[in-house]
Design a protein around this nucleic acid. Structure first.
Lengths: 343, 343
DNA sequence: ACCGTCACTCAAAGCGCTTTGGGTAGATGA
DNA sequence: TCATCTACCCAAAGCGCTTTGAGTGACGGT
């Protein structure tokens, strides 16, 4: 069923039917009702493509998901983020189109989305420091919003980020207050912006307590369970091992725990652990009492909000870029305790 | 830059330019080369919408991701599956459009995708037993392919599935051969087709060994870490506890391990664990030696293959529905060992 | 010299919608 | 009574592409 057929069926012109359906005022209430009802019974909905062609809007948002070509790894937070964003799009009648792409050919993808006029805007995932995509998108004149930020790029642009620096500074402070002095950091991949900011927060806290970051206690890599495990195992095997570990992902934290327990230690007693928790739906941090003390911020909420911001920017192109900084909450669980006394 | 401008620029008609770009034979090689070059320098690519309108194809595949409205949970395998499928689409010039939707309104979504002519086909995720979506899609005449199967629906349709029954039968056999007699099953949500088949395989093996499935040892639910933990903890606390656990997801298996170790047991010695492993990129099962003995099948490969199948079906609508059954490989890790002797 | 063939190229219609720029009939005010 | 509004409604153009059906010039065969 298309507009033409529907309007013939009703004995009206396409114009009138279109107007009735799109809420224009030049249609009598009676006619509008009649049209709406017919649309429903014939199960008519306008072709997105035709509508897009006619209006010049795509009614779609692109998400470009980079897959690190080295690790072939899909960021585990991606599913939840998308779920949040998807809700928002659905509510606003937008479609979400996804491009999975190895980070080498990202540029081409953005250019393609733009020149094919496939989307009204894009969401940028996993920004790195000095991420070139931001300048690219700005030069392409394609509306965009970034999940995270790119340190080193100082033109204004739309982003939404967790206050990673503050979160990790507070977490480190917390461990300090418990008496820990040897605090390890198991962080995300070098170059990722969030990892950079978390390390800054961590370092700032250490400095404030007259400690200095010890390179031996800082690791970064793709945040898998195995990564958390191997890092922790190695560090615990050395002289002067850490009494606490600060970890960038709940998944890695599971590996941290494995290493601790394998060594015969008890988490929260011999070694304390704090992790960031993205509140992923399939990885809750325990039940009522969190297993891990964590800095927590829902990535699903982030998706919802960022989508909202992008849609607003598209609807109102003259608006200056919005930004939003979310604070993570520190949830105390049973993975932390006072530093063991040195005997 | 659009076709009209490009063709004016070249002093050719739109027809010729279009034909040159789309590889039709009625264009001289010299002209074709000239056109291709111009397209490249002007960074021209045709508008998907216009092309779609003109050809009647959407050049897009829809993925409808159900979110269980009860649990608000995004299936963790989703990211990797999508990554696999996305590769295939990119190679074939297709776009992937995603709808996140609570399972109540799925029907409307499929109807919408169809009537808006937004996609050429859809991938069905997370089929349940007697899943009504299959009949719906068949009646809508919208090409589709299912990741998994729906027991109870016996018309032919396109699907790709892991041989869940066989995998779990073999896994159970394996545990039996190690001397285990009390084998627990921690399975996915009741009603999910894969969970049903896995339980069948499990039960079949027990029956073949003159055992009978003990309801006390069978759990099903959303496969989170916490779920694996609580199930295992409870079962280990009872009389006549299991000496082995068969688990449907690596994430839950992490919880199983936690419960085992919390109790002071050693995995692979006091309690053996076998899990299904979807080979998720962020959750490798250990390094060279798998941590968990596992039935393994890459969900990313599955995505790639299923996308391939769907595209083939769309290209050739008369072809009978393809199906593909993947065998999981049993990888022996260090989480299994001979059943402890009863003292 | 004429006629087919080839090898290219083109104008125009059509895909399904929105939107512009009217048109018409009835009601209203002078 | 007539001009002027309203309130509705319509025909047609246009969005950027593909595709049909037709045209043109060059060339070889007779």
């Amino acid at each position: 069923m298309n507009l033409k057929e529907l309007s013939q069926n009703l004995g009206l012109s396409q114009t009138t039917v279109s107007r009735a359906l799109n809420g224009y005022p030049e249609v009598s209430p009676a006619t509008r009702r009649r049209v709406e009802e017919a649309a429903r019974t014939f199960n008519y909905s306008p072709s997105t493509r035709a509508k897009g062609l006619a209006t010049g809007k795509a009614l779609a948002i692109g998400h470009v998901i980079p897959i690190s070509s080295k690790h072939e790894m899909v960021n585990p937070i991606f599913g939840d983020f998308i779920a949040g964003a998807g809700e928002t799009y659905a509510r606003h009648g937008y479609e979400m189109i996804l491009s999975i792409v190895d980070d080498a050919s990202e540029r081409r993808i953005y250019e393609g989305l733009k020149s094919r006029r496939a989307v009204d805007g894009v969401v940028v995932h996993g920004p790195r420091m000095d991420d070139p995509r931001i300048a690219l998108l700005q030069s392409l004149d394609l509306p965009f919003a970034v999940h995270g930020r790119a340190s080193g790029y100082d033109q204004p642009y739309a982003w939404l980020d967790v206050n990673n620096r503050r979160a990790f500074e507070r977490a480190t402070d917390f461990l300090f207050d418990l008496g820990h002095r040897r605090i390890a950091l198991i962080n995300g991949l070098e170059g990722m912006d969030f990892a950079h900011r978390r390390r800054e927060g961590y370092a700032a806290s250490l400095m404030a307590h007259d400690g200095a970051p010890d390179p031996d206690l800082m690791r970064s890599g793709e945040m898998t369970e195995v990564f958390g495990y191997t890092c922790t195992r190695d560090m615990l095997a050395r002289d002067n091992p850490p009494t606490a570990v600060l970890c960038s992902s709940l998944i890695s934290a599971l590996g941290v725990r494995r290493a601790i327990e394998e060594k015969g230690y008890v988490m929260g007693k011999d070694v304390s652990v704090v992790t960031h928790d993205d509140a992923l739906s399939y990885l809750q941090n325990g039940g009522d009492v969190p297993i891990f003390t964590a800095t927590r911020s829902s990535v699903r909420d982030a998706g919802q909000q960022l989508a909202e911001m992008l849609l607003a920017a598209i609807a109102n192109p003259l608006m200056p870029p919005q930004t939003r900084l979310l604070e993570a909450e520190l949830m105390v669980g049973s993975s932390t305790g006072p530093a063991p006394r040195k005997d």
